[in-house]
Nucleic acid binder design. Sequence first.
DNA 1: ATATCTATTTATAACTG
DNA 2: TCAGTTATAAATAGATA
Lengths: 89, 89
Amino acid sequence: MGRGKIVIRRIDNSTSRQVTFSKRRNGIFKKARELAILCDAEVGLVIFSSTGRLYEYASTSIKSVIDRYGRAKEEEHVADPNTELKVRH
Amino acid sequence: MGRGKIVIRRIDNSTSRQVTFSKRRNGIFKKARELAILCDAEVGLVIFSSTGRLYEYASTSIKSVIDRYGRAKEEEHVADPNTELKVRH
DNA sequence: ATATCTATTTATAACTG
DNA sequence: TCAGTTATAAATAGATA
């Protein structure tokens, strides 16, 4: 999606990496928001930049997403104990 | 990005909503993966469909992202106690 | 419901002030 | 660096099978 095609591998130049990070971070947050609205989904997105800075988006709240995630995982394990074993090993 | 332009609001028809969900979910997971690789970022993405089904992506693991998120939030509060007050009220 | 196709919109890589 | 532009690649809405 640009003047040149790129291959998906770590951008070595830190300035270019920072510029790409900033552009694509905006892009993915927009996509997350659109998905949540269009499809009535609950979406949580957490990003740590290579410099360690935190960026977050949630259609509800990150706390809500994390809590629901924990509950969903518990249910998975109850529903299929074998999955639990696989995950643990 | 399609034959017609759309407005970002809930898709009422549940079949269309499901189709769009499936396409855009794939798209955003791809974007998340590309961002992580290109920009050397840690990315965690959790999506619950309108039917309650869980989909997840993490460049490391969701657990790692949640743990790091918790630590980052703690640090924010230490750095700026006023933010903590605002968040809590 | 599921998959593939393609016209079109959208995202963005490289460029520019 | 840093915001804006533009040519092009990529995503996807609607169509079709």
